[in-house]
């Protein structure tokens, strides 16, 4: 798909865990600004691997090799410092991971603490309130800000993690199956939240749940065995898939 000024572009991205096999094979795709793009596919198709390449998570594991280019607003992220990339491309993980020793308040500000940025007390309060409001968590936790993040329910913890990622005002938010560990009500909350958030941030979400992709995403990618099989407007892809494999996956003939 072509966009006038894509925020993120994958250009022939390959990721390999071993020399023999590639987990992601020559994926090229441009991501539209202020949209939600879903990456779908069966387990092991490379969707999380592709997502994690976008904020240089693979750098942590020396045995993983990434080739190709990923551009953030036209700038190659492989030539940028990982700290800078990760501040501009935030990430939310599958399992809610609030820092267990930090309070809810400290968790929201963790991005600043970890970057060594000192804020005044009023700035801190403003950031915490705004971020928690943007994930609709403020009313639920405003009286217990000093309790540990792990005190919250799973859905609340995940919203706290989203708030923590949003606090640094990233341009892109990567989400790796953020609702797969949550109950349906908490998942619905997060889905509604993402629709609101796309006004300010571009969201790239990996999901196992086809219904979720259809409900919230503007564009969808279908990956299979490391290849990007199809990338299109979500409605178009669900109603009239171009590739037989996509069709087989969407109709449940292949999982």
């Amino acid at each position: 798909m072509e966009f006038v000024k894509p925020v993120l572009e994958f250009d022939k991205v390959c990721v390999s865990y071993t020399k023999q096999t590639m987990a992601v094979k020559y994926v090229s795709a441009a991501i539209e600004r202020n949209s939600i793009t879903a990456i779908m596919g069966p387990s092991g198709c490379g969707k999380s691997t592709l997502l994690r390449a976008a904020n240089l998570m693979h750098n942590l594991y020396p045995n993983i090799h990434v080739n190709g280019d990923i551009l953030l607003n036209g700038e190659n992220i492989f030539q940028m410092h990982p700290i800078d990339v990760r501040r501009r491309i935030g990430m939310v993980f599958q399992r809610p991971a609030p820092f267990p020793t930090m309070s809810i308040y400290e968790n929201v500000l963790a991005g600043f603490t970890l970057n060594g940025i000192n804020l005044s007390k009023s700035e801190k309060e403003e950031v915490v309130e705004n971020c928690l409001k943007s994930v609709s968590l403020w009313n639920e936790v405003k009286d217990v800000l000093n309790k540990k993040g792990t005190f919250l329910s799973g859905g609340q913890q995940q919203r706290l993690c989203i708030a923590r990622a949003l606090a640094l005002k990233p341009e892109v938010l990567l989400m790796d199956e953020p609702t797969s560990a949550l109950d349906p009500i908490a998942s619905k909350h997060i889905e509604e939240l993402l629709l609101q958030l796309k006004k300010d941030v571009t969201i790239l979400i990996v999901t196992h749940n086809m219904g979720q992709a259809r409900r919230i995403s503007d564009h969808s990618m279908f990956m299979y065995l490391g290849e990007l099989v199809e990338y299109d407007n979500t409605l178009k892809m669900f109603e009239n898939p171009f590739d037989e494999r996509t069709k087989a996956y969407l109709t449940g003939k292949m999982g």
Binding site: M57, L60, R87, G90, F93, A110, L114, G116, L168
Partner: peptide, 21 residues
């Protein structure tokens, strides 16, 4: 490992993730 990854994903440098998280 999610703790370390979550810390680094927020742009924290290695030393800070070790000491603060």
């Amino acid at each position: 490992s999610s703790l370390k990854e979550a810390g680094l994903a927020l742009g924290g440098n290695y030393m800070r993730v070790v000491t603060k998280v």
